[in-house]
Design a protein around this nucleic acid. Sequence first.
DNA 1: GTCTATATATGGATAGAC
DNA 2: GTCTATCCATATATAGAC
Lengths: 190, 190
Amino acid sequence: MTVDSRRTDTRERALAVALELFAQQGYSVTSLREIAERLGVTKAALYFHFRTKEEILTAILRGYLDGIAALVAEAEAEPRSPERQERLLRRYAAHQEQWGSDLALLVRQNATEIHDLPIAAEIKEVMQSVITVVAPPGATAAQRLRVRTALTTFQVAALSALRDDEGDEAELREAALALALELVRGETAG
Amino acid sequence: MTVDSRRTDTRERALAVALELFAQQGYSVTSLREIAERLGVTKAALYFHFRTKEEILTAILRGYLDGIAALVAEAEAEPRSPERQERLLRRYAAHQEQWGSDLALLVRQNATEIHDLPIAAEIKEVMQSVITVVAPPGATAAQRLRVRTALTTFQVAALSALRDDEGDEAELREAALALALELVRGETAG
DNA sequence: GTCTATATATGGATAGAC
DNA sequence: GTCTATCCATATATAGAC
């Protein structure tokens, strides 16, 4: 075997474990000890891969954010039209699905902690650009509220899917997309 | 003066301070020391009024929850109709406004911590009954998603109001109510 | 890359005086 | 009702061996 017995993918595994724990328990409640235990290493080992606890959270957000930024860049290359609007929403929904409900939970439940990170400004900027692409130029506050609500629909669906009595995940995802489309299409009415 | 120089309203003031800090920083990040400092007392003084930190959080949620439960009870006393549905939503919006954006933030940002409290079951039950009153009996998952989204609209608006570039609070509140009504009215289409 | 051991800080909570 | 002082658990982070 060319692979050393010592693990060399600890960093990636740590990010996966941290994502799950940060999402389900919260960032500040989750200790490095807990993450290390799940990985089968010690706290000190984690400090070889990350300089601080915040760096772990930042690394998780990095990949997710880059994905959204790519969606926006694609959309901005196309001419403004209802079709472009719809395509972006579908890509956004697919992106959310790909990253799973854990990341939606992570962002929602650790908003304050994330707000203090250097990456926060970038997140705000990117989400702003998502809204700008979907909402018409010079949109009113009410119209922008429709777009914001449309984007949160996927989060609401992801959270509902965690309940036993709200239907299966696929069904909810489909419903969320339909609802989001309805919201942005009706935006001239806002 | 019949009022003793020693404060006798520390409990209420503590709840107000805790609400603000829990909402803006998060429950687990906020220490009792910090709450005590803002009140001008020591940690030990807080323990005269509350047995644990969790009891503070629970006490905050208590008043809010009782308010919603009262709304539901009122609605359940009326016969099912589109008017009843709309009345409940308007009362719900007014209740959210009365409690302010801090409580919306508190619930949203400390969902996991709240989930572990004894009062969590009660909260889930009450929110469930809100949905049951608004959604038609035997509603599909998609229809219930519309109702859930309608209720979160007020939160989205409250959060948007905290931004400088999203219009003033009153404007957003009005838009949120209109959007929520649109969502529940169109529910047979879901 | 990972370990043991430790420095250092802070948290929730309690005891007992006033 | 509030204080000082303290217990105890746990946290982040580092030092240095392997």
